[in-house]
C-alpha cells in the first residue's frame, strides 16, 4: 500500500524475478497509464486461470488497467469466477466469505480513513451476481444504506458458473441452465434501480464493449466514492461455458446484449456531476 511498497530495497532489485522487475520499470504504479495502450506497459494482471474466451477475465484486465491509483487500492472479492483472476494481480486482494464483501469493505474503508487520514486509499469490491445480489444481498444493500464510501462492481455472468450452472437472481427470466432445467420463473433483479434507491451516488449499467468507456466509468466510480458515497457498476460479463457461447462469438454476444437489455445507463447525483465537470474543466485547462 503506497508507492514505496513497489520500490525494491537497495541491492535487492537484481534478486527479484523478472515479472516484478518489469512491474517496477514498466508497470502502472505512480504513473497515469492510458487503458487504450494496453500491451505497451506491464499490466497488474497478466496470467490468470479463467476459461478461454471468458468475458469476465477481459473485464478484470480492463478494470486493473483503469485504476486511478493502483498503488493505493485494495480489491475485495468473494467466491466465484472473478476472484480467480483478481487474487493473482499485483494489488492487495482480500477474499471475503461468501456474501460479506461489502461488510468487510465497510470496515476496511473506515479503518483506512483512521490509519491514513492524510492519504487517499481506494477500496473496490469486485464480485459476482451471486456474491452481491443473492447471498450477499443484505450486506450489499446495508453498505449502501449506510453511505459507505467505496465502489462496488458486479460482474454479472447471470449464473453460478463456478459450481456447475445454477440459476442466480440475475439470470434472465425463462433461461434454462444445466443445474436449473425447469427454467427461471422470475425476472432479473433490478440491481441498478435498487442501488439508486439505496443511495448510491453514481450508478452505471453497461456491457463492456468499449474499452475507453469502461475505463472511464471505473475511474469515475472510484473518484466519486472517495468524496461522496457508495458507487455501483453493473457489468455484463457473460459465462461462455454455461451459456454455450462459442469463444469467437463472445464479443458479438456482448454487443447483442448491449442492444437488447444491457444498454449503457449512467446515473449520478448533482454534486457528483458538478465534481466531474470541474475535473474535466481542469483537464482542458491543462491541455
Amino acid at each position: 500500500m503506497g508507492l514505496r511498497y513497489v520500490q525494491p530495497a537497495p541491492g535487492f532489485k537484481e534478486y527479484l524475478p523478472k515479472d516484478y522487475v518489469d512491474l517496477i520499470d514498466f508497470g502502472p504504479f505512480g504513473k497515469e497509464v492510458d487503458v487504450q495502450h494496453l500491451g505497451d506497459f506491464k499490466e497488474i494482471l497478466e496470467e490468470h486461470p479463467m476459461c478461454a474466451g471468458c468475458w469476465m477475465a477481459y473485464f478484470v484486465r480492463v478494470f486493473y488497467a483503469s485504476l486511478p491509483n493502483p498503488e493505493d487500492t485494495i480489491v475485495l472479492g468473494t467466491a466465484g469466477c472473478a476472484r480467480l483472476a483478481l487474487s493473482q494481480a499485483a494489488v492487495p486482494f482480500i477474499y471475503g466469505n461468501y456474501g460479506d464483501t461489502n461488510a468487510v469493505a465497510s470496515g476496511l474503508t473506515r479503518a483506512l480513513k483512521i490509519r491514513f487520514p492524510d492519504k487517499t486509499k481506494d477500496v473496490v469490491v469486485v464480485a459476482g451476481d451471486g456474491g452481491l445480489m443473492d447471498i450477499g444481498f443484505s450486506m450489499t444493500m446495508h453498505s449502501w444504506f449506510r453511505k459507505e464510501k467505496f465502489t462496488t462492481i458486479m460482474v454479472d455472468n447471470e449464473v453460478y458458473g463456478n459450481t456447475g450452472g445454477q440459476e442466480s437472481g440475475m439470470s434472465p427470466k425463462g433461461v434454462q441452465l444445466k443445474m436449473a432445467p425447469k427454467g427461471k420463473k422470475f425476472e432479473k433483479i433490478p440491481a441498478t434501480e435498487l442501488a439508486k434507491q439505496a443511495g448510491c451516488v453514481y450508478v452505471v449499467k453497461l456491457s463492456p464493449t468499449s474499452v475507453k468507456r469502461t475505463a472511464k466509468v471505473i475511474r469515475r466510480a472510484i473518484l466519486a466514492a472517495r468524496h461522496f458515497g457508495p458507487t455501483f457498476i453493473h457489468a455484463y460479463t457473460s459465462c461462455n461455458i454455461e451459456y454455450s457461447i462459442p469463444t469467437e462469438e463472445v464479443l458479438k454476444d456482448a454487443r447483442e446484449r448491449e442492444k437488447k437489455d444491457f444498454g449503457f445507463e449512467e446515473y449520478m447525483t448533482d454534486e457528483v456531476r458538478e465534481f466531474f465537470e470541474e475535473i474535466e474543466k481542469k483537464k482542458e485547462v491543462k491541455k
Binding site: 514505496r4 513497489v6 541491492g11
Partner: peptide, 22 residues
C-alpha cells in the same frame, strides 16, 4: 529467502536490514 518486509523499500530502516542480509 527474503520476504516482502525486506525486499521492498516500504520504510526507512529497510535499507540497512537489506544491506545486512546481502
Amino acid at each position: 529467502f527474503p520476504g516482502p518486509q525486506v525486499l521492498w523499500n516500504w520504510k526507512d530502516d529497510v535499507a540497512e536490514k537489506a544491506q545486512a542480509i546481502l
